[in-house]
């Protein structure tokens, strides 16, 4: 259990792992996540499940080595084992046939979009995909999403690939061109999800976003992941992680995601041998 069967660096500092855990592989549904630990004393790190191979008993995770704990995770190789992996956690994505749906991924947030896109396609949706990244080499899963979506657009902040600009610019363009989009799903950095939600709200297009607040247990026991949706407090780990983007209080989410900034700073100051840090989810 928990053995790393395959490892691939799919973009700079962005890794895909296939991890042996037949029960999670069998049970997981689109939109769910796992919580992993790499070593005793390590953080519990939530990572969205990208896919699974029931036959091989493996679960696919994609993450970017950005914080202390994901950097430690990136140090592991094929044959190593995660100390723990709990899941599948969270609610599965609500899937229905909307007609034409748009799936949007920002940065490595594109990874969790893939299983949801799969499920939406399966349900009969015609899919448009819009994925974005800072620069060309950070664009991931273009081929995989291209195979599912009838139209796939790519945007990069620096214009090194696809449209120059944000994914919202592309969405605006598609709407202006007359694409009749009935549903939007967006996963990525919080500012990106907020921008998408703000845009679709003006058109009244239902929009789901997958939130990544700080978590500890992932089972509803601690309430550290609380988010405000439609003025009510929800626990992202059990009530989500997906919520109606038009109802989410993104300002609060971003503030709370920064709770341990000082400790993260402490971690990077001591980077070499000091075990510190904090992973915001995913």
């Amino acid at each position: 259990m928990n053995e790393i069967i395959a490892k691939e660096e799919i973009a700079p500092s962005t890794y895909g792992y296939d991890i042996y855990h037949p029960r999670i592989a069998k049970k997981r549904k689109a939109g769910q996540f796992v919580i992993i630990r790499t070593h005793d004393g390590g953080e519990r790190v939530p990572l969205t499940i990208v896919g699974s191979d029931v036959q091989a008993g493996t679960v696919t995770l994609i993450f970017q080595a950005v914080g202390h704990s994901t950097k430690e995770l990136a140090q592991l190789g094929v044959g190593d084992r995660l100390l723990d992996m709990a899941g599948p956690l969270g609610k599965a994505t609500h899937i229905e046939n909307y007609g034409k749906a748009c799936v949007m991924g920002g940065g490595y947030g594109t990874a969790p979009v893939l299983p949801i896109a799969d499920a939406l396609k399966e349900a009969g949706n015609d899919l448009i995909g819009i994925i974005g990244a800072r620069t060309k080499e950070l664009v991931i899963l273009e081929k995989e999403l291209g195979a599912i979506c009838s139209r796939l657009e790519v945007a990069t902040d620096d214009g090194s690939y696809g449209h120059q600009g944000f994914v919202t610019d592309v969405l605006q363009k598609l709407i202006d061109e007359g694409e009749k989009i009935a549903f939007v799903l967006a996963v990525g950095p919080t500012p990106m999800m907020r921008a998408v939600s703000n845009l679709t709200k003006t058109y009244g297009t239902p929009t789901m976003v997958s939130l990544n607040p700080i978590m500890v247990d992932g089972t509803g026991m601690c309430g550290g992941c609380r988010v405000e949706v439609g003025g009510e407090t929800k626990f992202a780990c059990v009530d989500g992680p997906e919520f109606d983007g038009h109802e989410v209080n993104f300002d609060l989410l971003m503030k709370r995601q920064g709770t341990y900034k000082a400790e993260e700073q402490q971690a990077s100051d001591h980077a070499a041998h000091c075990r510190v840090g904090l992973e915001a989810a995913r």
Binding site: G41, S69, C222, Y260, R275, V276, L278
Partner: peptide, 18 residues
């Protein structure tokens, strides 16, 4: 939970959870 299970009281030494 942070202090007991995750041992955040030894953050920076034996534990990574702040």
């Amino acid at each position: 939970t942070r202090s007991n299970l995750m041992r955040a009281y030894s953050f920076g030494e034996k534990a990574d959870t702040p």
